[in-house]
Write a protein that binds this DNA or RNA. Structure first.
Lengths: 134, 134
DNA sequence: CTGCTTGCAAAGGCTTTGCAGAACA
DNA sequence: TGTTCTGCAAAGCCTTTGCAAGCAG
């Protein structure tokens, strides 16, 4: 994704495209991936110090609000941000700590519980924890 | 659940029944509920007993390992412990912060993705985030 | 006795905040 | 120019840890 595409993407999501946000988004969308705030800080700054820790946290909070990324809460350690914007679920290997995507089509959620009056589902979160240990 | 039942439950789960653990378990199993570590600390100590913060954290970690409770990661704020030991899922109201149980029968997960060689699912985690705001 | 457990306080580690200066529209 | 954003350091907060004293079996 080149710079002008990123700018467009940010604008479409109602995010003012500053230099830092463009760099962070550029790093995130190199490929679909699962990153922590620290990963992002390191990755973006790998070519030289250009974005501060506070800005990474600010920006990821903003991107989450604006629907550019999804937070995944896997463990108590840290938040992961998922840059795969298509509907999908996760398989988490508790032995290795690896997190994998599962296409929506591989899991079928049938039936929907009754929700409070006027409520709608804003996010469907499915994590299968798997282990190879007995 | 009376004291002897709690002792038995702990022993069945391979947990040495100390005074603190019995008090914590007694508080947890008054009713199915979703509690944070701080909730538990306050709740247990409000009943006139005395358990330290470190012991609450220790104990909840142990109870989780032994399968007496389940950790629910809803937001970045804190961990909730679920004392409902039956299979079930959750609906989280993002507006109010309320967390509700959904019986397993209300959601159907059909099809299972292919897992790594020899892996098995140790936990199935489903959270529907709902909102009433436009 | 002998190894777990507990409790206190201090440390840890991720995340947020206050505020001054810089960038944006 | 008025607003928004950034960066630094400090603060916040939940959770863990080190270690001496206390219990369980």
């Amino acid at each position: 994704m080149d710079r002008s595409q990123i700018v467009k993407l940010l604008q479409q999501h109602d995010v003012t495209p500053t230099r830092q946000r463009i760099e962070i988004a550029g790093y995130l969308y190199q490929r679909p991936q699962h990153l922590s705030a620290e990963n992002i800080l390191e990755g973006v700054n790998a070519e030289g110090h250009r974005v501060s820790r506070a800005t990474v946290y600010n920006t990821m909070g903003l991107f989450t609000d604006k629907g550019l990324v999804r937070e995944i809460l896997i463990d108590r350690e840290r938040i992961f941000y998922d840059t795969n914007r298509s509907e999908h679920y996760h398989v988490y290997d508790v032995d290795s700590g690896e997190l994998h995507d599962v296409m929506q089509s591989e899991i079928e959620i049938a039936a929907v519980p009754k929700l409070p009056e006027g409520a709608r589902i804003v996010d469907t979160n499915v994590i299968l924890r798997v282990s190879s240990k007995s």
